[in-house]
């Protein structure tokens, strides 16, 4: 009973803050900009190719990938990526599947697949970093902890509230990306086929033996589900930093630096395989669905899931240990 009230309090506080409203505003603005840019890019490409026929465009992309594959300067990971593109393209041509079919659901899919490594986690960090540290720096933690409610309960209510807020954020992303991009591309395309079952290893071999298609709405459910899981993991990590650090700004800074460092690691240090145990390297879970090669050798879907899960669990344990024991000094 009291616990439910605590959660309601936390959610209400966050929704009343400018922070959450600003995040939503930025999100809407970005959706509009991305939709516009994508629309423009498609138009330009059609003009360059002289036709809007997707067969031509896809064939063009395959040829380009094949040419680039000859370059001796490519790393194994880049080669694998190109291989995957070629194989996918050929499969799509053979089965008459248009990968460029426009529509709001297609935009949602691209946005989530691309955004989950950096953009969406950034939003999550902005919200989660604030959960505990703002009470510490604002002094309001003293009120929360002197009301005869146990510290573990107070912290747990914040964690549950955070899960709800992350769910709200993802719903906002889903709804706004659909509504806003639909203005540019139309609202059709829920049933378009999406390829699944490509298996690309980091060394560059592509297995097309088990390829099948699912309707786009189903794929979207999966990718948003996985996105939610990834966001929760990021949220737990930020939550821990937020309990350890007094200032919201520094807790946000720490998490953002870690996130960006992780993204850089995946592109720069492909030979340092121990990096695969870092949470920020494992964020692109949906990559395992659509057949992109893993960022580092030895990574599989279940491996990434486990890494994220363990980090999140550790973060929660540390948060609780520290929060229930710490002395709230001035």
């Amino acid at each position: 009973m009291i616990f439910a009230h605590l959660i309601a309090n936390e959610v209400m506080k966050m929704l009343r803050k400018r922070r959450f409203q600003v995040v939503l505003l930025i999100l809407f603005a970005l959706m509009a900009v991305f939709s516009y840019a994508e629309k423009q890019a498609a138009n330009t490409l059609a003009r360059q190719l002289g036709t809007a026929d997707w067969h031509v465009r896809l064939q063009h992309q395959i040829t380009e990938a094949t040419n680039r594959l000859r370059s001796p300067l490519l790393s194994a990971a880049e080669k694998a990526g190109l291989q995957a593109t070629i194989q996918e393209g050929q499969y799509e041509l053979a089965h008459d599947i248009n990968p460029y079919a426009p529509g709001a659901p297609s935009f949602m899919k691209t946005f989530m697949d691309e955004g989950i490594t950096l953009l969406v986690p950034l939003f999550v960090i902005v919200i989660a970093s604030d959960m505990v540290s703002s009470e510490l720096s604002g002094g309001t933690i003293k009120m929360l902890l002197t009301r005869g409610v146990s510290r573990a309960k107070v912290l747990a209510s914040k964690l549950v509230a955070l899960v709800l807020l992350v769910a709200l954020l993802l719903s906002a992303i889903a709804v706004s990306s659909y509504l806003i991009s639909g203005l540019f591309f139309g609202y059709q395309g829920w049933g378009l086929p999406v390829l699944m079952g490509f298996h690309t290893t980091a060394s560059g071999t592509v297995d097309v033996g088990h390829v099948y298609t699912v309707p786009q709405w189903k794929y979207l459910c999966m990718t948003f589900g996985l996105g939610f899981f990834v966001c929760l993991c990021i949220a737990c990590l930020s939550f821990m930093v937020s309990t350890l650090v007094q200032s919201t700004a520094s807790s946000m800074g720490i998490m953002m630096a870690a996130l960006i460092a992780g993204t850089l690691l995946t592109t720069l240090a492909t030979s340092w395989t121990a990096a695969k145990y870092l949470p920020v390297v494992n964020l692109q879970l949906s990559g395992y669905l659509n057949g992109s090669p893993p960022p580092l050798a030895g990574m599989t879907f279940s491996f990434s899931l486990c890494v994220l899960l363990i980090w999140a669990a550790l973060a929660i344990v540390v948060s609780f240990l520290v929060f229930t024991r710490r002395d709230i000094m001035g």
Binding site: H5, A8, N9, G138, T140, L144
Partner: peptide
């Protein structure tokens, strides 16, 4: 210890609700 972005009533309500 008050939340400046809430009203006085909401501040009281937060604590009372706890």
């Amino acid at each position: 210890d008050l939340y400046p972005y809430l009203t006085g009533y909401e501040n009281l309500y937060q604590l009372a609700w706890m």
